[in-house]
């Protein structure tokens, strides 16, 4: 018998928090990501290589979640908006103040290009009973995040395993 609250059981398999990115995909973050990882791949730096290999500039596939991380501050916003809201909903409902991500699986579809405006939604796949680890006592959960571009083409799926916990 599951010890999950009915509200959490109701979230499992439900498409939630469908949203459009707050800004267009742009090259500034692509350069900063390449810079942060010392990535010299010419398809991100050289127009000729991008035209020849990827039909123009693209974003690094691994940046897929970047385009949905909300601004830290924005006018008329009373509360800070959080990315991966389902994760924070679970922390809140189980009153687990800390959390870490333990597993991440990403499948990449159509390349994301500067100027694209992506859409996303989140789906809770599972949530465990209470488990004790070296970090504390808490629960594991699996969340899928799907991404499509403005033409409805699938560009990727990000699957996270999170662990929300309270330090013992």
């Amino acid at each position: 018998m599951s010890d999950l609250p009915a509200e959490v059981q109701g979230w499992i398999g439900q498409k939630r928090y469908e949203q459009e990115g707050e800004f267009d995909v742009e090259r500034g973050y692509i350069f900063t990501t390449c810079s942060s990882t010392e990535n010299a791949n010419p398809i991100y730096w050289e127009e000729k290589a991008a035209n020849e290999i990827t039909d123009g500039f693209i974003a690094l596939p691994s940046m897929i979640s970047v385009w949905f991380r909300p601004h830290h501050w924005a006018p008329k916003r009373e509360e800070q908006v959080l990315p991966l809201q389902v994760h924070f909903d679970l922390k809140a409902i189980f009153d687990l103040p800390e959390a870490v991500m333990s597993d991440n699986t990403v499948t990449f579809g159509e390349p994301v290009r500067p100027g694209d405006r992506l859409r996303t939604w989140q789906t809770l796949r599972s949530c465990s009973g209470e488990k004790k680890t070296k970090l504390g006592t808490g629960r594991f959960w699996d969340i899928d995040v799907e991404y499509v571009n403005q033409r409805g083409e699938w560009v990727g799926t990000d699957s996270y395993t999170g662990y929300g916990y309270r330090r013992d």
């Binding site: 991500m101 597993d103 699986t105």
Partner: peptide, 9 residues
């Protein structure tokens, strides 16, 4: 072209 990646921290 990266198609799929899984990692465990």
């Amino acid at each position: 072209r990266l198609g799929w990646i899984r990692f465990r921290m």
